[in-house]
């Protein structure tokens, strides 16, 4: 083998090891969640400034008005699963630019730096109050959690991982929909992920989807709406089309509270709206009731 080739391969290995190292650090950072820049954060609902430390202690819920802040994937895992139990799977995916859109690669690399993720979806093995499960989280800070080829593939991989290990699957959804830059490939991910969920159904495994703010577009019209049990966070925006599009189409103002989690529970589209403080408890209860395939 040529020396240059060897050198290149060696460097690649080194780079990958470094990448792995940053991933391995994640459970630790999940213990003390990422502090958003600055010491204060402004609540969008009640307009008061909240000390970030209080916010983290309060599971990213505004202590004043109970507004649920948007949560990064790392923090979501941190506030949901047992300490040190999370093991990330499905590393090393590289997003490409299938339709040669301008500035797409730059955008992706910017988001990669900003969020320290390689794509908008993270999954792995975890335990919630000692109940083992596969947990998948969409990060709305990574291009609005939009679903492109890599996210679609990783969602399917997480389903397949759950099937191999015969574990229940929990997904936290936060996504604007399909990723426009990957065009038709993103659209096809809807079919791909929905098909995978069907396989999971045939195997008799539990799939809980938790809809958080926002859940719209191609993600809500595929695997997000197919949970055996669908939970939602209070006041989360959930729907197929965004409110702006609906307004433009029907040329009317929308009713108060339209497309919120409570609205959908009222219409029978969501099983239960669960406060973030009770999420861990609810999930662990549900998991315990579905052990041994649901038979008590």
């Amino acid at each position: 083998m040529k020396r240059e080739q060897l050198k290149e391969a060696f460097e690649r290995k080194k780079r990958f090891k470094n990448q792995l190292k940053t991933y391995r650090q994640k459970p630790e950072s999940a213990k003390t969640p990422d502090v958003p820049k600055g010491l204060y954060e402004k609540c969008k609902e009640c307009k008061t400034t909240v000390v970030v430390e209080d916010l983290i202690k309060n599971r990213f819920v505004c202590p004043n008005c109970d507004n649920h802040f948007r949560v990064r994937a790392v923090d979501r895992i941190g506030i949901t699963v047992d300490e040190d139990s999370f093991v990330e799977k499905g590393l090393g995916y590289i997003t490409l630019n299938p339709l040669f859109q301008d500035h797409y690669e730059q955008k992706i690399s910017e988001y990669k730096k900003k969020t320290n993720l390689d794509e908008a979806y993270v999954y792995g093995y975890a335990e919630i109050k000692r109940h083992p499960c596969v947990i998948g989280v969409l990060d709305s800070y990574f291009m609005m959690g939009s679903m492109g080829s890599v996210v679609g593939e990783k969602v399917v991989k997480s389903v397949e991982y759950a099937m191999v290990k015969r574990l229940p699957l929990i997904m936290f959804i936060a996504s604007g929909g399909a990723r426009m830059q990957e065009g038709i490939y993103s659209l096809m991910q809807m079919a791909k992920t929905s098909g995978a969920i069907q396989k999971l159904n045939e195997q008799g495994l539990l799939y809980i989807s938790v809809l958080t703010h926002p859940t719209t577009g191609g993600v809500s019209a595929s695997f997000a709406s197919l949970g055996d049990i669908i939970l939602a966070e209070p006041k989360a925006l959930i729907g197929f089309a965004g409110p702006r599009v609906i307004k433009q189409t029907i040329k009317q103002s929308l009713p108060e509270g339209f497309q919120t989690a409570e609205f959908l529970q009222d219409k029978g589209m969501v099983d239960k709206v669960v406060h973030r403080h009770e999420m861990q408890e609810t999930l662990s209860k549900l998991l315990s009731m579905h052990e041994k395939g649901g038979r008590a």
């Binding site: 090393g92 590289i94 890599v150 079919a191």
Partner: peptide, 10 residues
């Protein structure tokens, strides 16, 4: 449909 997608895996 399982194989639709355009990406790489290291």
């Amino acid at each position: 449909y399982r194989n639709l997608g355009f990406f790489q895996r290291f």
